[in-house]
């Protein structure tokens, strides 16, 4: 009915967070230290803003495609109140229940998969940096 709206709300928050963090990363003390060593933060670790971009791509992409599916099934319409279920109280209650169950699980699963991706990527990056450092020492 409108389950994709939960992840859309999450995507709005994480998109704003990505922009703010990206700005902060560029001017942070850590970036300055790496710059003085002739390095970028991305040479040493995967920046959080980049990781958030992966989540945003998954969330916005998924929401766009699911929104299309809801249009296909006549659950989302281009006129007010946009959600057909919102036109009467009984359907609205069912819609809110679906958002609270299916929608929340969708958001939780996408976020969990993203956390897994971040953990694997950080591990791979850390090992690559350690190998490079070991080579440099030899």
């Amino acid at each position: 009915m409108a389950c994709f709206l939960v992840l859309t709300a999450e995507a709005i928050v994480t998109t704003v967070a990505e922009k703010v963090i990206e700005k902060k990363e560029k001017t942070s003390l850590e970036a300055e230290i790496y710059k003085s060593e002739g390095k970028e933060i991305s040479d040493v670790k995967i920046p959080l803003s980049k990781k958030l971009k992966w989540l945003n791509n998954m969330a916005w992409g998924g929401c766009a495609l699911l929104a299309f599916e809801h249009v296909w099934h006549g659950e989302v319409v281009p006129w007010f109140p946009f959600l057909t279920a919102a036109s009467n109280a009984e359907d609205a209650a069912e819609m809110l229940h679906e958002m609270g169950t299916v929608g929340v699980v969708m958001a939780a699963l996408v976020t969990t998969v993203w956390l897994g991706m971040c953990a694997v990527a950080s591990y791979v990056k850390k090992r690559a940096v350690e190998k490079d450092d070991a080579k440099a020492e030899v």
């Binding site: 389950c3 994709f4 992840l7 992966w54 791509n57 998954m58 969330a59 916005w60 992409g61 998924g62 929401c63 766009a64 495609l65 699911l66 299916v102 699980v105 969708m106 699963l109 996408v110 998969v113």
Partner: peptide
Amino acid sequence: ALMFWGASLMWFVD
């Protein structure tokens, strides 16, 4: 790829 994975995960829950 991430766009399709996001949608696939959501439909999986569905």
